[in-house]
Computed example of a mutant assay.
Amino acid sequence: MKENVESSGGSATITPSQQIMASSAGALLTSLFVTPLDVVKIRLQAQSKPFSKGKCFVYCNGLMDHLCVCVNGNSKAWYKAPGHFRGTTDAFVKIIRNEGLRSLWSGLPPTLVMAIPATAIYFTCYDQLRDVLIPIMGGNAESASVVAGATARFGSATLISPLELIRTKMQSRPLSYKELRLCIQSSVAKDGWLSLWKGLGPTVLRDVPFSAMYWFNYELGKKWLCQRYNTPEATFTIHFMAGAASGSIASVLTLPFDVVKTRRQIEVGELEVFNNSQKRSTSTWRVMNTIMAENGFKGLFAGLIPRLIKVAPACAIMISTYEFGKKFFRKLNSEQQLKTL
C-alpha cells in the first residue's frame, strides 16, 4: 500500500515503512527535546512535596505518558534526592552543575520504548486513512483529517494500552520476565483479557478529541499560513507554526481529561506498589466530580501552563520533523524513479 501525496505537493509516493521511519525520527527528536522539561518539572514538584519511597508520579513527554516509581536513595532511581531550586532556570543550572548534563535526560529509555512505536503507528495510520477519506469526502481535507486523526489515535491507544499496563507493573516493583508473565496470566485468569486494557477509557476520552482537534486546526492553520505567505507548498516553518498552534488549542480543550488520567495513573500505581486492595473510583465522570469537589472547577485545568510549555513544542517538532522526513523520502524515491527510466 502506497501513500497518495498529492495533498502534500509531491508527485512521487512514499511507502508506509518510510512513513514509519519519518515518524520515528520525529518521536526521537521530540523526546530528546522535551525530557529535560519534565525532569525539571518533577524536581520542582518534589522539593515542594517530596515523593515518599514507592510513591508514583507521572512523566509525560508530550506524546506518551509514563508512570514511574520513586525509590529515594537508590542510584538507579528516576531522579536523585530533591534539591533546593528557586525556579526553572535555577533548577536547570544547579542540576547540570551538581549532577551533570546527562541527568536532564533521566528516564529517556522508557520514554523511547513507548513513544516511538506508538507515534509510528499513529502517524502512519493517520496518513493512510486521510488519503483514503479525502476522495470519499469530496476533497474536504479538514473533515478527512478529523475522522482519520480520531480513528488513528483510538487504534494506536488501544494497541499500546497493554504495553502501558505491563510497563506499569514492571516499574512498580522489580519483576523478572517469568514473574511478569505469571502476573499477567493471573490477571487474565481472574478478570479476563479485557484486564489488559485497564485505564483505556480516560486515555481515549483525552487523546481521541485531542487528535481530532489537532489535525483539523493543523490543516486549517497550514492552509491559512500558505495563503498568508503566498507559497504553494508548506515549508518547514509553516509546519512548525501550525503544529504548535493546533497543539496548544487541543491541549487547553482536553486538559480536564488529562488531569483525570493523571490521577487514575497515580491510583493504579499506588495499588500496584502498596498492594492496596481498596477500590478506587473507576468512572471518569466520578473522578471529575471528586476533583471539582476538592479543588473547584479550576482543578480540572491544573497544570495548564506546564502542559502548554511541553505539548506545544512537542507537537511542533513532531509534525515538522515528520513532514521533513516525508519530503526527504519523496525526493529520494523521485530520483530513483528517474534513474530507472
Rank of each mutant, 00 (worst) to 15 (best):
V39T: 13
K53A: 15
L29Q: 03
S31D: 00
H66E: 13
H66P: 02
Q45M: 11
K41P: 07
S48T: 08
C68N: 10
I42G: 06
V69S: 13
A27S: 12
P50M: 03
S23H: 08
V69K: 10
L29R: 02
L28Q: 07
T35H: 02
F57K: 08
K55R: 15
K41T: 13
F51P: 04
T30E: 00
Q45I: 04
I42P: 00
S24E: 01
G54M: 02
G62V: 02
T35F: 00
V34G: 02
L44R: 06
S23L: 10
C60K: 09
G54Q: 01
G62A: 09
A22E: 04
G26W: 00
K49R: 14
A22F: 01
S52I: 07
S23F: 06
L37C: 06
L44T: 09
P36T: 09
L32W: 00
F51L: 15
K55D: 15
S52Y: 02
L29G: 06
C60D: 14
F33M: 08
P36I: 08
F33S: 10
G54W: 00
V69H: 05
F57N: 09
H66Q: 14
D38K: 07
D38A: 12
P50F: 01
Y59D: 09
L32E: 04
S52K: 14
D65E: 14
G26I: 02
C60Q: 11
S23R: 12
A22G: 07
L32S: 08
F51H: 12
V39Q: 05
T35Y: 00
L44Y: 06
F33E: 03
S31H: 00
G62L: 06
N61F: 01
Q45P: 02
L29N: 03
C56T: 15
S23G: 12
A27M: 05
V69A: 15
D38S: 13
V58N: 10
G62Y: 01
N61Y: 00
D38N: 12
Y59G: 10
G62E: 05
L67V: 11
G62Q: 06
A46C: 07
L29A: 09
C60M: 10
L44C: 08
C56Q: 14
Q47D: 10
I42T: 12
S24D: 00
Q45R: 07
S31R: 00
K55F: 07
P50T: 06
C68R: 13
P50L: 04
L44F: 06
V34L: 03
A27L: 04
F33C: 10
F51D: 10
R43E: 14
L29H: 01
S24A: 15
L37D: 06
G26C: 03
T30W: 00
K49Y: 03
